[in-house]
Nucleic acid binder design. Structure first.
Lengths: 354, 354
DNA sequence: AAGCGAACTGAGACCGGTCTCAACATACCG
DNA sequence: CGGTATGTTGAGACCGGTCTCAGTTCGCTT
């Protein structure tokens, strides 16, 4: 109606008219493609400047089919892991001229499906997804069916032939568990907040392939050390019960564990709180190791021994793979496995003599 | 060429042909607008289903002028403050049917300008910006000139008449400083990583209005307590020198401070590290208070006394204001100031007797 | 039975770019 | 000097939706 709203955007045609050339020529000058004489180009550019012309990227997408936008679907941007991975992806994307549309799935397959649908409708050139489930992959199929490139990160989907970037979680879990075993622990709990029905059994496969790998590494290492029924030490659904609550339960009573492997830094935080509440000292009364070198793990007393993941690089590499596909690489799907790195601090000690 | 790439997307026209109706009618049925008879609607929907029709949101934007996309420009998504605010904004946006395009400015005005340009070109319906500078506001003017709604958050731009969501930083700083004063401290440092030329003088205004307010609250409280030349206790550019490095410098020698106000949780982390390296105990040898209730501030020994900000709500409220503008609210610009909340833990004690 | 309004449908313009194709000018070739 | 290659320009189709407007078919009123 009034004021700014009524002002139509300046278009190529407007610029063309002002410059006294055809729309096609103006577009060539502005878009810097095709052949335009120097004189005409200057005239068009001057007219654009004068009118305050701003290109409409959507119109461009309509005719070229390329949006220069990538979709990224993660669990939760507040989770430092995803924040870092997203930043890694954003940097690579930007450098290549792409923007990022961000969606949080809250690890819910339905929300994820919806987010993917919207991203597809917005015609992103490709998607970066940390899938809520490595098993229920219809969401991901949708993307492939739509003919859009897809790269998975943090979690794989074995059933799907698609580029993937993950960390060497199984080895990481083995190393962490071995460390605890070597210190003399036999009763070690593995805690993750991943959702799972009922107690963990060895034949189960977890919805996140990365947690699944960690659990496997943990179980097989305990088993090799002769610990009977190691799967009973795997505790999932931590977020539902409450990490602190769960940790307290595991740390009290006759069958209390003497060490804990935290599947991420949020879990480690909860364990720390629980230990403090129970007046248990780390590492004297409880040894703790965790995945991810969160910034605070170095400043607690004691510092936490962690398995660091190259999180930034996971996101960056995923973006690189995706952009390669967008640019037309038709090779077979690649799985990039990045190494984890142990950072030993002071949260591990031999268990208290009984 | 071959395979998937060659497959054209299914369009409204395709669906119309299959259903045996006109494009206009098919569009009405699919878009759920206008009048369509039940029989025809079913036929169209069935055809769409059969063909695997997926709407093209960009084409829709082209004709309606609305993209249902918001732009958000922040310093760095890896900074927990921005991650939380972004999540708050994303939740509100999603609920209202909007997506978010994310850009990191790294607090650099030029990168910010570029990001804004791209977002504008992608025809976002509005922008959420935590401006890199509260003073150099040409970047923000661009948005207003383009006729797009803009909401600032975390930092204000006094020169600009625009909706803004900030926290009561000045009061927060006063309270934190008073706490330290009450414990008996007189030599208190304020540390921020904000960029600033030369030593801080009272007439200077800082590029971030929120840090500016904190500094003012800090300085005026010291002054009221009779501390001479309080501005000499303000230390900026912490990221350039390195937070830990700077903290160590302030904590050694005859003129060492006995307490520190950290302008954010990243600074607090650096101070913690420095204290540990110098073998200074908190709070016996050094008192520490900080802004932002980062998740780890409760698990260190001792826990850190902090001024918590409603970060999630800052982002959410900003998104709410923006969406209101997009929906056409033409009222005068609003500034929403959210309260901060003190969380007292154990990092403050009287200074060591000299 | 004629008249009127509501419900439904189709044709085609439009959003703002890109791109193909043809027209024309100029230069260079033998 | 005719022929061809090269450079520059314009006309108009196209991308995939929305939306206006006009036409058709009804049912219902009087």
């Amino acid at each position: 109606m009034s004021g700014d709203n009524g002002r139509r955007e300046v278009t190529v045609s407007d610029v063309a008219t002002t410059a006294g050339v055809s729309k096609a020529t103006a577009a060539r000058a502005l878009g810097d493609y095709g052949a335009v004489s120097a004189a005409v180009r200057d005239r068009v550019l001057a007219a654009a400047e004068q009118l305050g012309y701003r290109p409409n990227a959507l119109a461009k997408t309509m005719s070229t089919g390329r949006s220069n936008t990538l979709g990224i679907v993660i669990g939760d941007i507040e989770n430092p892991f995803f924040a870092q991975a997203t930043r890694g992806a954003a940097d690579v994307a930007n450098a290549a001229g792409f923007d990022l549309i961000l969606s949080n799935s809250d690890e819910d397959a339905e929300i994820e499906a919806n987010a993917i649908g919207v991203q597809l409708a917005k015609r992103v050139d490709g998607l970066l997804v940390a899938p809520a489930s490595s098993v229920r992959i219809d969401n991901l199929r949708t993307i492939i069916d739509a003919g859009r490139p897809l790269v998975l990160f943090d979690r794989a989907a074995p059933e799907l032939q698609v580029d993937t970037v993950i960390a060497a979680n199984r080895k990481g879990a083995r190393d962490l568990t071995s460390l605890l075993l070597a210190a003399g622990h036999r009763r070690i709990a593995f805690i993750s907040s991943i959702a799972h029905d009922g107690p963990f059994r060895r034949a189960d496969s977890l919805t996140s392939s990365s947690v699944d790998e960690r659990v496997r590494g943990f179980v097989e290492t305990l088993e090799a050390a002769g610990v009977p029924e190691p799967e009973r030490f795997v505790h999932l659904n931590a977020r539902i019960e409450g990490v602190e609550q769960l940790a307290r339960r595991l740390l009290e009573g006759d069958a209390a564990v003497t060490a804990i492997v935290a599947s991420d830094s949020l879990i480690a935080l909860g364990v720390f709180r629980a230990a403090r509440a129970l007046d248990l000292r780390i590492p004297d009364d409880l040894s703790l190791v965790a995945f991810d070198d969160a910034d605070w793990t170095g400043v607690t007393t004691p510092g936490v021994t962690v398995m660091a993941q190259p999180i930034h690089e996971i996101g960056a590499e995923a973006a690189r793979l995706l952009i390669r596909r967008i640019r037309g690489d038709g090779g077979p799907p690649v799985t990039s496995v990045l190494e984890q790195r142990l950072i030993a601090r002071d949260s591990v000690a031999p268990p208290r003599a009984v």
